[in-house]
Computed example of a mutant assay.
Amino acid sequence: MSETDARDGDQVTARLDRLNEACRAAPQEIEPQIALWSAICSLDEWVFVNRGTAEQPRPYALAAEAGHLVCIYSTPERARAGAIANGLVAEGEAVPMFSTPLPSALDWVLGLAGAGVSGATVDYPQLGAWTPLPNLARFRQT
């Protein structure tokens, strides 16, 4: 990874961190949540920890009270940290991951509803904000 890519990734995560804090500061307010998910849906790509194979990727998902939540990561660094924190790999091991450019990633995640996914979470456990798939569909570019 180049120094420029690292700086860009740091700027992305810093912005998402700020937006996430605004959501936590006003949990009943919808505007901060819309701003956060707008930023997430404006990324160039979404990164996923792969629990399947290279030929048949399957993104890591959480079993939550709301149903299965697919884990979207804003950067490969956040995906790696999430995989380690969630016990998917040990520190120092390679993390299988894949990325998908937006807006294709959004359509692909929405298609996971047929596999029992009910929502998405971002940068879990660093952030952990989540939204139901029907809300995420509102960010689809027309």
Rank of each mutant, 00 (worst) to 15 (best):
V49Q: 05
D107T: 11
V70I: 12
L110R: 01
P27A: 07
P125A: 15
W37M: 01
D123N: 15
L43I: 00
I72A: 08
S104D: 15
A90Q: 14
S42K: 02
L112R: 10
N86C: 12
V117R: 09
L110P: 00
F98G: 06
E45T: 06
P59T: 11
V49A: 02
A120V: 15
V122S: 06
G67M: 13
A79H: 11
R78F: 11
T100N: 06
G119N: 10
A54H: 10
G114V: 05
I84N: 03
Y124P: 00
W46L: 07
P96Y: 13
Y124T: 14
D107R: 13
T121E: 12
I34N: 07
G92K: 08
G92T: 08
V47I: 09
L102A: 03
Q33V: 02
E93M: 14
I30G: 06
P96S: 15
A105V: 02
E55T: 03
Q56H: 13
S38T: 12
A66G: 04
G67F: 12
L112H: 08
A35M: 00
T75N: 07
Q56T: 14
G67Q: 08
A94K: 07
A113Y: 04
D44A: 05
P101H: 05
Q126Y: 07
P32G: 09
M97Q: 13
Y73S: 13
Y60V: 07
A61C: 13
P96Q: 14
L106A: 06
T121F: 08
G87N: 03
I40S: 01
A66V: 14
D44W: 01
G87C: 10
P76Q: 08
G111Y: 06
F98P: 07
A61L: 11
S42R: 06
I30N: 01
L43F: 00
R80C: 13
T121K: 06
Y60C: 09
V89C: 08
Y124I: 11
A83Q: 07
F48R: 03
F48Q: 02
L110E: 02
V70W: 04
S74N: 12
R51G: 05
L110Q: 06
N50D: 15
A113F: 03
W46C: 05
G114E: 15
T53Q: 12
S42Y: 00
Q126A: 15
S42G: 14
T75Y: 13
A66P: 00
A39N: 02
C71G: 06
L110M: 07
P32E: 09
G111D: 13
Q33E: 09
E91K: 13
S99Y: 10
S104C: 04
A64K: 09
D123E: 15
N50Y: 01
C71D: 12
A35N: 12
G111K: 11
G87R: 06
